[in-house]
Design a protein around this nucleic acid. Structure first.
Ligand SMILES: [Mn+2]
Ligand SMILES: [Mn+2]
Ligand SMILES: [Zn+2]
Ligand SMILES: [Zn+2]
Lengths: 141, 141
DNA sequence: TTTCTTATTGCAACTTTTTGCAATAATATA
DNA sequence: TATATTATTGCAAAAAGTTGCAATAAGAAA
C-alpha cells in the first residue's frame, strides 16, 4: 500500500515516530509530486484517514520540512505550499499568466560557490522562485 | 513633513489616488528602511493616523508591492514582510542564529542572463532569500 | 505480551490575513 | 467652487494558520 513506509528509518534515526497521520500526508505529497497547499493536503489525506485534523496537517508539514522530507515554497500566492523532497531545484514563474517552470540547481551552483566564498556562509537547501514574464507574455506587453 | 508626498506622481500616472492611509504607510516604510511585518507597519502608522485599520494596511502593502513602491519578502518566518523599494538586492540568512546579510544584485546578473537565454523568460524584480549557516554557526555544528 | 516513557494528536481558543459590500472621499470636470 | 465619477476605506464575517494543554498511542524496555 503505502510507499510512505520507506520514510520510517529516517524518522526513527532522529528519535521520531511514524504515525498514520504522517503516513497519509507523506503518501499524498509523494504521489502528487507537485506543490500543494495545506488545505489541499488536508482534503486529500482525509480520504485515507478521515479522522485527520487541519491542525495536524499544519504541524506535520512543518515537521516534515524541518526534517528534510518535504520542502516549503513561496510561489507568490502569499501562502506557503509544500512538496515532497526530491532533487534540488528552483522555480521560474510568470507574473502575468502564472506559467511555471523548474530550474535545475546546477544552474545556480556557480552563484552558490561565489556567495559562499564572498560571505563565509555555507549555503544549504534553498528552493527559490524567480519571477518574470514568459516568452508568450512578453509579446503582448 | 512627509517625504512620502514624493510618491504622488507615480500613483497619479497609473490612475491611483494618494490618501492619508497610503501616506502614513509609505512614511513608515520609508523611514524604517528595514523589513517590517504588517502588524509592525500598523502599529507605527497608527501613531500618525489613529483611524487606520489593519485591513487597510494589508491591502495597502499589497497595493504598493503591486505598483513597485514596496517589496515583499519571505524571510523564513512563514509570514510576508515588506520594505520600501530601493536598489535591487537579495538576502542571505542563517538558519541557526537568524543573522542576515544583504546580497547585491550584481552577483546574480550572470545567473539572470543565463536563465533568460535558456528559458526565454525575461526576469523582472526578484527579491530572494538564500538560506545557510553563517561562518560562526559552522564552527559549532 | 505487558508496562512505561514521552512524542504526537485533537480540541478549543486565539491570532493573522482575506473578502464582500456599502459608505466615504480623492480628484477630474463643469 | 460645486458636481460627478469611481478608487479607496472601514466594518463585519470568513478563512487560514498558530498555540496550550490534556488525552492518546508509538515503540522501547521489561
Ligand atoms: Mn519545487
Ligand atoms: Mn530586502
Ligand atoms: Zn506568461
Ligand atoms: Zn548563524
Amino acid at each position: 500500500m503505502s510507499c510512505a513506509h520507506s520514510y520510517v528509518p529516517q524518522l526513527r534515526a532522529r528519535g521520531y515516530r511514524m504515525t498514520p497521520q504522517r503516513l497519509a500526508i507523506l503518501h499524498v505529497l509523494h504521489h502528487s509530486g507537485r506543490h500543494l497547499s495545506p488545505s489541499e493536503v488536508y482534503e486529500q489525506a482525509r480520504m485515507e484517514l478521515p479522522s485527520l485534523t487541519e491542525t495536524t496537517v499544519y504541524r506535520t508539514l512543518d515537521f516534515l520540512a524541518e526534517n528534510g522530507l518535504a520542502r516549503p515554497a513561496y510561489m507568490g500566492s502569499g501562502r506557503l505550499v509544500y512538496e515532497i523532497a526530491r532533487h534540488e531545484h528552483h522555480h521560474l514563474k510568470c507574473r502575468n499568466c502564472g506559467h511555471e517552470m523548474e530550474v535545475q540547481h546546477d544552474l545556480l551552483k556557480t552563484l552558490y560557490r561565489q556567495l559562499e566564498s564572498e560571505t563565509g556562509y555555507r549555503l544549504t537547501d534553498s528552493h527559490v522562485t524567480f519571477f518574470g514574464l514568459c516568452s508568450d507574455c512578453q509579446k503582448g506587453e
